[in-house]
Design a protein around this nucleic acid. Structure first.
Length: 423
RNA sequence: GGCAGGUUGCCCGAGCGGCCAAUGGGAGCGGACUGUAAAUCCGUCGGCUUUGCCUUCGAAGGUUCGAAUCCUUCACCUGCCA
């Protein structure tokens, strides 16, 4: 099968190419044959997140177009940690890294095809790094890295004042070596990654040229940021995790549903497999009647389905519709409401000693972190029981408040719901 | 190894013996306005058995009626010198 010649145009249109080495040469290569490419993921956490999803989906786009993916999980680089502005990383233990490597690998696999002519391959850079001797490393790899150039890199420059260890400083050598190794052993000639990886990507291209006289390509995908330039994912403990244990599918869907208007088009292009025509049609519909949030809905449904599956997506869409429907909660059947609340997050409470007060319930459901915070929220008029504002922090729900004889619906602010099942 | 400076709440950053749970900004959170958007305005932002109490200002000791603020030791960071 010959590769899809429109691939690069599509990637460009989607805004997926923020930086690149010789784009003309890459275009030519991608038209000629099935290019073996690689993208790496470091196990710095038990789960991948939103930023990694860009790479995963881009890898799949390339594979769909006929190219051959090598997905690398960084068992070695994960031991080192790439430098970031916020400062030196804490090293993780070998056991931790090993466990995370496995988890990350399992998260990537469903997105790629491991069959056919251009079947994907999973690789781990620990395999070719662990046994390398220091002398070989310094002679064969280190010799090709001018320190003056390494110092000029932004991440390094910004860290010079605050301090950067030799370990993190050397990270670029490891990642470059990965590219070289895959180039030699598997004929991999293209690497891409997030734009924060640009220095590491070009490091590999350059190493291949200097050491083997080879020609390789690299491009970087854009950073995903909010319309005002700040990072996404301040809620839910810092990041938008793909692991349903770390971020519930319900919250995941809610995230996409809440995306700013200005970002909808961009995110549709990056995170969905809708065609150009489909996306332009959605954007037009959205521009005409933004209050219908057609863009957000399409985006949320598509991405959540990709990550959590169609069945789960349907369930949580129903849950969202029930909770945000605006109608009277009592109009819902206990079954529908219970199902919705279980998706949104719920706790079970034993009423033999009486139903707890609203402050305790806010804490138990996780809507408030502490009783003080719960009281504060009530004082600010931001706490609701069954969609009715709670005025009195001493309020204790009664049997009459139970919907369908079992459920209490608590809400903090406009869109944080939680259920309490009273037994 | 020496000398100097630093370590404050999620982040930045004031405070330099009582008026400090600790100024200010950002983030976060809630309200109003909206469309589960954005912008704007207002409020809030350690914990609790909440008109008071408890635990915080790198760690441990000490001085004092009283310390984030003074002293000692230790740890870490930055700079200069060796």
């Amino acid at each position: 099968m010959s590769p899809d010649p429109t691939l690069l145009d599509d990637l460009e249109w989607r805004g997926l190419i923020a930086h690149s080495t010789d784009l003309g040469a890459l275009r030519e290569a991608l038209r000629e044959r099935s290019v073996r490419f690689y993208v790496g993921f470091d196990p710095t956490a038990p789960s991948l997140h939103l930023g990694n999803l860009v790479q995963i989906l881009t890898a799949r786009r390339l594979q769909n177009a006929g190219h051959t993916p090598y997905a690398l999980v960084g068992g070695a680089t994960g031991m080192i940690g790439d430098p970031r502005d916020s400062g030196e990383r804490t090293l993780n233990s070998l056991d931790t890294v090993k466990e995370w490597v496995e988890r990350v690998r399992r998260q990537i696999e469903p997105f790629l095809s491991f069959e056919g002519d251009n079947a994907a391959t999973m690789v781990n850079n620990y395999d070719w790094t662990a046994s390398l001797s220091t002398i070989d490393f310094l002679r064969d790899i280190g010799k090709h890295f001018p320190v003056n150039r390494m110092l000029a890199r932004d991440v390094v420059k910004s860290r010079l004042e605050a301090g950067i260890s030799y370990t993190e400083f050397s990270y670029v050598l490891l990642q470059s070596m990965d590219f070289l190794s895959l180039y030699r052993d598997h004929g991999v000639t293209l690497q891409f990654g997030g734009s924060d990886q640009w220095g590491n990507l070009t490091g590999g291209v350059e190493l291949i040229r200097r050491s083997d006289g080879g020609k390789a390509h690299a491009f970087a995908t854009p950073l995903i940021a909010k319309a005002d330039g700040t990072k996404y994912g301040k809620t839910e403990g810092g990041a938008l995790w793909l692991d349903p244990e770390m971020m519930s599918p319900y919250s995941f869907l809610q995230f996409w549903l809440n995306v700013e208007d200005e970002k909808v088009g961009e995110l549709l292009r990056i995170f969905t497999f809708f065609s150009r025509d489909e996306i332009e049609e959605i954007e037009a519909r959205h521009a005409e009647k933004p209050f219908l949030r057609a863009g957000q809905r399409a985006l949320a449904e598509h991405v959540t389905t990709l990550v959590h599956g169609a069945e789960e997506t349907e369930r949580i869409q129903a849950a969202s519709a029930a909770l945000f429907g605006g109608g009277d909660l009592r109009g819902l059947s206990a079954g529908t409401l219970g199902a919705a609340l279980r998706e949104a997050g719920s706790v079970t409470v034993d009423s033999s000693g009486g139903i707890p007060g609203v402050v305790d319930l806010l804490v138990q459901t996780g809507l408030s972190k502490s009783k003080g915070e719960a009281r504060r929220t009530i004082g600010e008029g931001g706490a609701y029981l069954n969609n009715t504002r709670i005025d009195d922090p001493e309020q204790v729900p009664t049997a009459a408040d139970l919907i369908g004889g079992a459920w209490l619906v608590l809400r903090r602010g406009k869109k944080n719901f939680a259920g309490v099942e009273v037994r």
